[in-house]
Simulated assay, not measured.
Amino acid sequence: MRRYAIVANQTLDKDQLLRVVRERAAQGPADFWLVVPATPVKDLASNAVAVPMPVMGGTLALPHPPAEARRLAQNKLDAALEKLAAAGVTADGAVADPDPLRAVESALAGRTFDEIVVVTLPTRFSLWMHQDLPDRLAHHFHVPVTAVATEDV
């Protein structure tokens, strides 16, 4: 059985994720683990959380706490696992460290993977691609890494 780590956050609801999983499942028995970094709300490409605006005489709103990032990531993970299950794919996963390299490192504790797939926003919007995440993962973990960019934000 081949084992795949899929690293995604904002792209968990995109069709490319399902396509990648189906392609790999078609090659034979497969096990999928979704690694979902708890991306800070301020770093999300399309901020789905209403940010309170300061009012005259009021104080500036504090940044969203890490708990908010974890909650959003968990909601996305739960929805992605339901979508994959509905498509007949068995998968599991966990919300992890905001840093995707550390998130994969924690996923590898006690697991081995044959491939790491990074599903990102389009390259022009993707912080992970600007940080060269796929190459950094391949260099650090010595596992083949495939980057798949979505077509929209």
Rank of each mutant, 00 (worst) to 15 (best):
3 R>T: 15
3 R>K: 15
4 Y>H: 08
5 A>W: 15
9 N>A: 14
10 Q>H: 06
12 L>E: 10
14 K>T: 12
15 D>F: 03
16 Q>C: 09
18 L>F: 11
20 V>D: 13
22 R>L: 09
24 R>W: 15
24 R>F: 08
24 R>V: 06
29 P>I: 08
31 D>T: 09
34 L>E: 01
35 V>T: 07
36 V>G: 03
42 K>G: 04
46 S>C: 02
47 N>Q: 14
60 L>W: 08
64 H>F: 14
65 P>M: 09
65 P>D: 14
66 P>R: 03
69 A>F: 04
70 R>D: 10
73 A>Y: 06
75 N>I: 13
76 K>V: 02
78 D>M: 03
79 A>F: 09
79 A>Y: 01
80 A>S: 04
81 L>P: 01
84 L>D: 00
85 A>H: 01
86 A>G: 09
91 A>Y: 02
93 G>V: 10
93 G>Y: 04
94 A>Q: 06
94 A>T: 02
95 V>M: 03
102 R>N: 09
105 E>T: 07
109 A>D: 03
113 F>G: 00
115 E>I: 06
116 I>A: 04
116 I>M: 01
119 V>R: 10
120 T>N: 10
121 L>S: 05
122 P>Y: 01
127 L>K: 12
128 W>Q: 08
135 D>Q: 11
141 F>V: 02
143 V>N: 01
150 T>D: 08
152 D>S: 13
